[in-house]
């Protein structure tokens, strides 16, 4: 709520109902830039984040625990064994086309795996990595 403009942009995008991964990336990048002037999303940092072992959760220590090292491949839930469709929009165009859904899963998974909410900068970096590869 510290950045009403970014929040407004996100809500406006939600109201439009047809977001794109690029649009979400831009929204997160703009929010990050409002805190860190000159911020540019980095696929390299996104890849590092995606592969990092946070170790907060025993069964889900990292993003790759469920989504595998290659987010363009199908994953598998580390606890239930359920198949997970590819996370990368380049492999699964349905990904990151709903801002509210993206926020819900960032909320759940960042809390579970990272142990805290993810920053807008981390989300922007991750989205660039998922969209473009490292």
């Amino acid at each position: 709520m510290k950045h009403p403009l970014a929040l407004l942009a996100l809500l406006a995008a939600t109201a439009a109902g047809a977001e794109t991964p690029r649009g979400l990336l831009d929204t997160y990048a703009a929010e990050a830039a409002s805190r860190t002037p000159g911020f540019q999303a980095s696929a390299r940092r996104g890849a590092d984040f995606f592969g990092r072992r946070f170790g907060v959760s025993e069964k889900m220590p990292a993003c790759v625990s469920c989504h595998t090292e290659d987010p363009a491949q199908a994953g598998r839930h580390a606890i239930t064994g359920k198949d997970i469709k590819p996370l990368a929009p380049r492999a699964n165009p349905a990904r990151f086309t709903d801002a509210a859904k993206a926020e819900k899963w960032f909320g759940r998974n960042c809390g579970e795996v990272v142990g805290r909410p993810c920053s807008a900068a981390e989300k922007a970096d991750l989205l660039r990595f998922l969209a473009e590869g490292a």
Partner: peptide, 10 residues
């Protein structure tokens, strides 16, 4: 292939 009893679909 199963991993969990909750994985019915396996």
């Amino acid at each position: 292939r199963v991993r969990s009893a909750a994985n019915c679909s396996a």
